[in-house]
Amino acid sequence: MPFKERYRPNKASWLVRAGAFAGLAFMHIPVFIIILYAFTTDDRTYRFPPPGLTLRWFEVAFGRADIWQSMSLSLLVAACATVIALILGTLAAFALARAKFPAKDSLTVLFVLPIALPGIITGIALLAAMKTLRVDPSVLTIILGHATFCTVIVYNNVIARLRRLPANWVEASMDLGADGLQTFRYVLLPQVATAFLAGGMLAFALSFDEIIVTIFTAGKERTLPIWFFNELFRPRDRPVTNVVAVIVIAVTLIPIVLAYYLTRPDDEHETAR
């Protein structure tokens, strides 16, 4: 017994370790499976293991006009929503980062509400408003919806960085003779730029992949997720769907990984305080 419960302060028990690694594996297996299936030669069932591997389906997918159409619509929506979100989210973050005024808490809640409430609420609410105002769904209504929740993402990223900045950097800059604009340019911007970029990338990825709100605001427009969703119920071109899945993963993950590296706590910033 005395050897069994030897005290090792920096070692997790085998139970915690096993649970942690098993959990991590659980989170990744489905993603690997999807990538594997994009190369299967089987085009009828979800048979496992795949009988053979091929690149043929990529060629087929790239030849499909409907996929290209949905893809370019999704990219357009994501780009527009991201630009709007960058402007609105950054403004809101700068306004609320330090100022103190009576309605501040309510505003802070308002600016995170679109992601705190389930997406379906935003979706059905936008639809209800469109019905009330007799607005027809279009690309514009999709962008309107996406920009709303994308703003929250940018706001969260930028305000988190602003709150980490010591208040006296701004004071030090003004003390040394810099006015508001110079302080913004030389002190705040270099510090906030990466959070701003990261917020934009996350917003882009989120918009590119969004379906829950989009279904309500899209009408007859087909973004890539909507195309994908329809395929799930009419699985005629299973192999093509698999390929599109891999493409979607690639398009969303690249900005996500970049965003992660942009917001990683920088040793230099941490110790300089």
């Binding site: 006296n168 004071e171 230099e268 305080r273």
Partner: peptide, 10 residues
């Protein structure tokens, strides 16, 4: 001003 935590720009 010389600040308590120096407030040097990192």
């Amino acid at each position: 001003t010389v600040f308590q935590d120096y407030a040097l720009f990192p």
